[in-house]
Design a protein around this nucleic acid. Structure first.
Lengths: 213, 213
DNA sequence: GTATCCGGATACAGATATGTATGAGAAAGT
DNA sequence: ACTTTCTCATACATATCTGTATCCGGATAC
């Protein structure tokens, strides 16, 4: 249990625990609703440790945002690479959403808290914007490939189609968080499948290719 | 400027100004970031007036949420009724979004703040849920009518199609708030038009009717 | 093994928040 | 008119938050 830790390692762990505690509390009570004291306490420290590791709450938020952005970007990259077949890709997507559904409220709350913070903090916006662009880019690639496989040209700019699919994720999760009765756990995947089918149909109908949007 | 006001009327105005000030501040700094003092001050009063009119910040938030929910529900009802032609409906939608685009950040921040508050406050959730259901219901009606007009049966449960269209609104506004470069001002309307076209195509292709979803 | 350094705890000062109790002046009742 | 009632302002007591300054004990260096 209590192995001797190097100083560097010890410090790293402290920072990590503080960040994790902050993430929890931000989801529960909001960034503004969570005090430095509460964060430190949940992580098992006092404010002293906090101020020793971060310049203040804002600095921690910025770092949390970066950490999570980086991690999600990585996941996106992996997911984009590991998709062999269409069925496989959708299966992975379904698994992902089932997992997320387990603690949707927490997850969504944290995403929205960070998002709000980014919208209000100009210097942080590019960071999130980049993450979104990356996700959309990967999606655009996937959409183009899937439509190609069906032999149909894309019925609109793939980037726009990807934007729709990506935006749907936030939108549907919000709807489900507010009204779980009306929105199924796998609504996101169902929706994307439907969209893909309908775009294929549209592409087939209008001849072969266009690119408005 | 200074006409004699009846007590009842004066009180009503005070409450209204407090609510308006609160909405502004919530958008700027978040619900937790705005103090009762700041709200009262922006409205041109002191805390005394605030506590005379509300039991506390939470009570005000609840009332604000109700007020805005009711107002939006009304707008939805009007919009749903006043739609004569498809072109007209889309024109109205475009106008609506152009207007909203003018202060997207503020609008989105307030919506998300209230949404977060509702997600965290169980007794407030049904209120927002009802508003969302209403909006989706109106949309479902519209989608069904438009697809009918094109002679095609709906390619999926209209409620599900409406859910997609509705969710897209939040999702796309979020994307635009984060990354205005990549997301056009009228992306929502463009997207809905595209979806409608593609669903029509899909319905035409798969024979006449299905209803998964 | 001893001196040094550093990560975290403790203690303190100032600022800001909330909520209540009380008071003044305008509207309402008679 | 004058008394009552209501709305909002003022004053006060208390709690909480932030940030810094200082101290202790275990790592690191020699």
């Amino acid at each position: 249990m209590s192995e001797r830790l190097t100083r560097q390692e010890s410090r790293r762990r402290t920072r990590e625990r503080l960040l994790a505690a902050a993430a929890e509390l931000f989801a529960e009570r909001g960034v503004n609703g969570a005090s430095v004291e509460q964060i430190a306490e949940r992580a098992g420290f006092t404010r002293g440790a906090f101020y020793g590791n971060f310049d203040g709450k804002d600095a921690l938020v910025a770092e949390l945002l970066q950490e999570r952005t980086r991690r999600e970007a990585e996941e996106v990259r992996e997911a984009a690479g590991g998709a062999a077949s269409r069925a496989e890709a959708f299966a992975a997507l379904r698994a992902w959403h089932r997992e997320r559904a387990r603690n949707l409220d927490t997850w969504l709350a944290l995403r929205m808290e960070l998002l709000l913070h980014a919208v209000r903090t100009p210097e942080l916006r590019p960071l999130l914007a980049e993450r979104e662009r990356l996700a959309r880019g990967a999606l655009a690639e996937g959409v183009r490939r899937e439509l190609d496989r069906d032999g149909a040209a894309t019925p609109a700019d793939p980037a726009f189609l990807a934007l729709i699919a990506h935006a749907l994720e936030d939108g549907l999760l919000i709807q489900r968080a507010l009204d779980p009765e009306s929105v199924g756990e796998e609504a996101v995947v169902d929706a994307v499948e439907l969209l893909l089918r309908s775009w294929t149909a549209l592409a087939g109908e209008t001849g072969e290719g266009e690119a408005p949007g």
